[in-house]
Design a protein around this nucleic acid. Structure first.
Lengths: 201, 201
DNA sequence: CTTGCATTAGACCGACCGGTCAACTATATT
DNA sequence: AATATAGTTGACCGGTCGGTCTAATGCAAG
């Protein structure tokens, strides 16, 4: 019943890597097929269009992410604010090792795609936004826990979580523009001190 | 001696708008020529390649920026920390009015381009990075002034400035992904409280 | 009026784009 | 063994890509 060769998975894996290291528009179906050692016909057997592929890639990568370093960083056994430091560490080491492998920083796939396609495809944009929302929620839960335990004074955990995500994406953007992972290392310490007070609106 | 028609300037203006609202890869020479009401021959008379065009667009936009809202926001007559608030206001109103005009948030041209091309073209990346560095320097000068006047406690102004820029770009990224300028409004208040202490390295 | 140069026009190029299609093969079910 | 179906092949499609080229303009100086 299950595909034996896992061709579909191979396509997604190749596309994920290519999209992440270059851009959605710059990577063609032909190239993806070549790298997955298949023919175009096979590709279109599994995906109706390039757009459907990138949709699947986003799902796949969001899952990787959730099960991978996000699960590690937001480990409930860690003290809440240490989890936030862990996020920085994970981002730093990931970008650094990517640079060692490929010579350049790929940045965040979701951030890259969001800036590339948001103005052109609202469905894609919404899907990317959903990933950001779930990332924000992780931060929010952590902040709520820290407040409850009296580790940090009360704040607007919803907005602060969003602000932390913004700062994280911004650091990665700047690191990519500099092609220097150390940016994340240098700026990371400020992440957990970001605060948005309650009732300022 | 000077070109009368300003064809070159028209090309840059059109390209700037298209690149900003869509993406570098997605906008073709043909489309730019159509919108500038010229033929391909004219385009290639002024620009050897599409890449040279985007280089010129970056220069042009950086100048617009420096003379426009950056000059306004970093007005030496304003109290230092108010300048930083002004940056947020400017970003917010700009994105909001762009959305009213086009239905979507274009984000920051430099951020968009940086994420799109940084891994593919090192010269382009370096040019974008230079724009970010000069933006960071504006923040740094402001912070140094605020410290000197005793308005804020001493901090690492270089890194804090970089962190502020990262946060700004991150907010814009998230706002674009949500297609909602209010993100900038909501999160903006945290910008001027970002701090990176001295000697933490 | 002529020369010379900057600018413009638009046909044209090969390459590649995303996508289609009919034929073929492998595999599982009956 | 026969059949159905999932997977695969590779030729093919119209269209667009970035870029070239030649010929025709406009215009200013001699």
């Amino acid at each position: 019943m299950n595909s034996t060769n896992g061709t579909r998975e191979r396509i997604i894996e190749v596309a994920k890597s290519r999209f992440h290291n270059r851009s959605y528009a710059d990577v063609g179906i032909r190239e993806i097929c070549d790298m997955a050692s298949i023919q175009k016909g096979s590709f279109y057997h599994f995906f109706p269009s390039k757009r459907d592929l990138v949709l699947a890639v986003i799902d796949n990568f969001a899952l990787d992410w959730a099960n991978g370093f996000v699960a590690e960083a937001f480990d409930p056994l860690l003290p809440p604010m240490e989890r936030i430091d862990y996020v920085i560490d994970a981002a730093y080491f990931w970008q650094r090792s990517s640079k060692e492998l490929n010579g350049h920083i790929p940045g965040c796939l979701f951030g890259n795609l969001a800036l590339e396609v948001s103005t052109q495809d609202d469905v894609l944009r919404a899907k990317l936004n959903a990933v950001f929302i779930s990332a924000k929620d992780r931060f929010k839960d952590t902040l709520d826990e820290a407040i409850e335990q009296g580790i940090i004074p009360p704040l607007d955990s919803e907005f602060t979580a969003e602000a932390m995500l913004a700062y994280l994406e911004g650091m990665i953007l700047l690191a990519k523009a500099k092609n220097d992972p150390e940016v994340i290392y240098r700026l990371g310490s400020a992440l957990k001190n970001i605060r948005i007070e309650l009732n300022t609106h």
